[in-house]
Design a protein around this nucleic acid. Structure first.
Lengths: 233, 233
DNA sequence: TGTGACATATAAGTCTGACTTTTTGTCCCC
DNA sequence: GGGGACAAAAAGTCAGACTTATATGTCACA
């Protein structure tokens, strides 16, 4: 992914982070820095750095004379990519995938609409390339190749929206798409209708038709919601 | 806000964070831990903890033999509440407000639709109370009181959506609303039409009319976009 | 002149131990 | 039983020595 396990404190985080986000330490649990340092066989300085990071993610709170207490889930920085990755890697995975898919359904249509207005020529070209790649790999069990182009497609849309907040969701969306292919039920070739929708979105963006790009993308995300049985009405 | 300036390293962050997010150190700038420790008159241990936090926010990258280099804006964890607060407090404020308002326009309508399906009786009651509070303070230059109820209203909607990712945007939305009242041009009483929309959203949610709640909320967010001259078509 | 191996300097990374500060629980006394 | 002083516990801070990785410069050799 990005740069995992860099330094000793990173190694500690790779152990503690998933454990906490998995609910292994229920909210209110108290950890002691010294004990943790011993357990992970690192110095207190290193342990303190790790705790500081967990604190900035609002997973824990460090108080004098008390120790390091685990915060309730509702206070976590759930948008921190690291936290998202930890949760996706653990028992919380299904729940996290649902949350993120709902988020996608809100954000991506609007992003596509904005992309139709702001996308550069290069971005339009890239988008079309992605769509072509998806079509080319939509049959014959070439799921991995399809996935690569699918992830790229959505990333381009989000970046081309021109909104930094949307752009930064590219990694998250990619993670969701990858999860669908790798862990969920997706043995067969992708739905041809979905592939067509992607091609049409690329068209709409190229033509600057914001309303159509938004509507088509909404259809894509509705499909994603249905896959997870998140059904409305 | 939450718990600012806790401990020495927190004090350092309160100085460094805003400076970096304000672009005071352009991307690629190199800082040295020792020099920073001297400058802020703290020990290296404390400085290292601060750097670790900045690193987890992806504002900087620490590499051996090089130093602490500032990352390009595109890599920052722009959803980190701390980063958002720093940017809102600095020169980037207008740009950040626009980004967040666009995000709101994507998320809040969908959240309102979900709230109509999932809101508890208590949440419906709270929502109605907020709407009443807004109406009661909509005339006579009682902007502060109006703001309190406005923030509460949107927070309830986001929480009642039942989606943790939406719920965690409550603070951000509150910050945007507060910003509009405190820093932007908003001397007069709020737009009566907007107040009515809020009342109607509360109604729709109470009645479980998801489509109407979503549509009405979309009208609210369109208004917010127009205030900032973010116009479509 | 270019290229590779090697040496060196540099800045982060780590560890240790001593000390400080804050908070909480307890116990004594009124 | 309540209030205040005291003691213990855990995080917080600091200073210094040492380790490790790595960018960069140097020099020999082709």
């Amino acid at each position: 992914m990005t740069t995992p396990g860099r330094g000793l404190h990173g190694h500690v985080l790779d152990s503690l982070g998933p454990a906490i986000t998995a609910g292994e330490y229920p909210p209110g649990s108290v950890l002691r820095t010294d004990e943790l340092a011993q357990r992970f066989d690192v110095s207190r300085s290193v342990m303190r750095e790790a705790v500081r990071v967990l604190e900035s993610m609002r997973l824990v709170e460090s108080r004098r004379r008390v120790g390091v207490t685990v915060r309730p889930k509702a206070e976590w920085n759930v948008y921190d990519p690291q936290v998202i990755r930890w949760r996706l890697a653990g028992a919380d995975r299904p729940h996290q995938l649902r949350s993120l898919t709902v988020l996608r359904s809100a954000v991506e249509p609007v992003a596509a609409g904005l992309a139709a207005r702001h996308a550069s020529a290069a971005q339009c070209a890239e988008l079309t390339e992605c769509a072509i790649g998806m079509v080319a790999n939509s049959r014959g069990h070439k799921l991995e190749e399809y996935l690569v182009h699918d992830m790229a497609f959505h990333r381009v849309i989000l970046v081309a929206s021109g909104n930094e907040m949307f752009a930064r969701l590219g990694d998250v969306v990619a993670e969701v798409l990858a999860g669908r292919t790798h862990h969920e039920v997706m043995f067969e070739d992708p739905d041809p209708a979905a592939v067509t929708l992607h091609v049409q979105v690329a068209e709409a963006v190229r033509e600057g038709d914001a309303a159509r790009a938004e509507k088509l993308t909404r259809e894509i995300t509705v499909g994603a919601l249905q896959e997870l049985d998140i059904l409305a009405s």
